Simulated scan of single mutants.
Amino acid sequence: MEDHRIRAADADRERVASAVQTAGSEGRLTLEEVEERLTHVYAARFTDELAALTTDLPRPAPPRPGFPLTRAALRRHPALRLHLAVVVALGVLLVVRWAVLGAGFFWPAFPVFWLAVSLFVHARVRSFRERPGTAVPY
């Protein structure tokens, strides 16, 4: 029966070494355990040997998506840029109208708030649709 083990690459070793060092800095491993595991990491020849060195450590949390309204998102989506321009134009128009009429109560805060919410929801939907593995509803 043939041995179907996969050889470890330097990138695999560095990834596992980083996980071991992180566990040491979090206090999950003592300094001696970190040194011992790092010695085994850099001596490992196969990926299953590397996996055995981190089985008792927690998996890192998957990265959370950041704020959806970024410059990169605005560059990728012309509809989002247009929505932002409309929100800004309407906000300025409402504030100018409030200032010209001399109303005491700042009523434009409410429509500007809802315009901003609509822009945020639009950006959030766009970022959700860009994630790999998500179905785009039609």
Results as ranks from 00 to 15, higher is better:
residue 104 G to L: 05
residue 102 G to P: 00
residue 76 R to C: 05
residue 98 W to T: 01
residue 89 A to F: 11
residue 104 G to E: 09
residue 86 V to N: 01
residue 95 V to G: 02
residue 92 V to P: 00
residue 111 P to G: 07
residue 101 L to P: 00
residue 102 G to N: 09
residue 97 R to A: 15
residue 101 L to I: 01
residue 91 G to L: 13
residue 99 A to C: 02
residue 72 A to V: 10
residue 113 F to D: 03
residue 82 L to Y: 11
residue 83 H to Q: 11
residue 111 P to R: 08
residue 111 P to Q: 12
residue 78 P to M: 08
residue 79 A to M: 12
residue 100 V to P: 01
residue 91 G to C: 12
residue 96 V to N: 02
residue 100 V to G: 05
residue 87 V to W: 05
residue 100 V to R: 13
residue 100 V to H: 09
residue 76 R to S: 11
residue 103 A to F: 11
residue 75 R to G: 09
residue 82 L to T: 15
residue 75 R to Y: 03
residue 91 G to S: 15
residue 83 H to E: 09
residue 84 L to A: 15
residue 112 V to Q: 07
residue 74 L to F: 08
residue 101 L to R: 08
residue 87 V to P: 04
residue 78 P to A: 13
residue 98 W to K: 04
residue 76 R to L: 13
residue 113 F to M: 09
residue 88 V to D: 02
residue 82 L to F: 11
residue 85 A to P: 05
residue 109 A to K: 02
residue 85 A to S: 10
residue 87 V to T: 14
residue 107 W to N: 03
residue 91 G to E: 10
residue 81 R to Y: 04
residue 109 A to F: 10
residue 103 A to M: 08
residue 112 V to M: 06
residue 79 A to C: 05
residue 74 L to Y: 02
residue 113 F to A: 08
residue 94 L to F: 15
residue 84 L to I: 13
residue 113 F to L: 15
residue 98 W to H: 15
residue 84 L to H: 10
residue 78 P to R: 14
residue 94 L to H: 04
residue 111 P to E: 09
residue 78 P to N: 11
residue 78 P to C: 00
residue 112 V to S: 03
residue 108 P to D: 10
residue 94 L to G: 01
residue 81 R to N: 06
residue 86 V to D: 03
residue 91 G to Y: 12
residue 94 L to V: 01
residue 83 H to D: 05
residue 107 W to V: 05
residue 94 L to A: 13
residue 104 G to Y: 03
residue 82 L to W: 14
residue 87 V to E: 05
residue 90 L to T: 13
residue 108 P to N: 03
residue 108 P to E: 06
residue 102 G to M: 06
residue 109 A to P: 07
residue 106 F to M: 09
residue 99 A to G: 00
residue 75 R to W: 06
residue 75 R to N: 10
residue 85 A to D: 05
residue 105 F to I: 01
residue 95 V to N: 08
residue 105 F to K: 00
residue 72 A to L: 11
residue 97 R to E: 06
residue 100 V to K: 04
residue 111 P to N: 11
residue 72 A to Q: 14
residue 73 A to D: 13
residue 103 A to D: 14
residue 75 R to V: 11
residue 92 V to F: 06
residue 72 A to P: 02
residue 105 F to A: 03
residue 94 L to K: 00
residue 81 R to T: 10
residue 77 H to G: 04
residue 85 A to E: 07
residue 112 V to Y: 01
residue 83 H to A: 15
residue 108 P to H: 02
residue 99 A to N: 01
residue 94 L to T: 07
residue 77 H to P: 00
residue 80 L to V: 09
residue 99 A to V: 04
residue 103 A to Q: 14
residue 72 A to E: 14
residue 81 R to E: 04
residue 112 V to F: 02
residue 112 V to W: 02
residue 73 A to F: 08
residue 106 F to Y: 14
residue 78 P to W: 14
residue 107 W to P: 03
residue 103 A to V: 11
residue 105 F to G: 00
residue 112 V to G: 01
residue 103 A to P: 00
residue 95 V to S: 12
residue 80 L to E: 06
residue 88 V to W: 04
residue 81 R to W: 06
residue 95 V to H: 07
residue 84 L to N: 05
residue 106 F to E: 06
residue 83 H to V: 06
residue 110 F to I: 13
residue 79 A to E: 12
residue 98 W to I: 04
residue 99 A to K: 04
residue 84 L to Y: 04
residue 99 A to I: 01
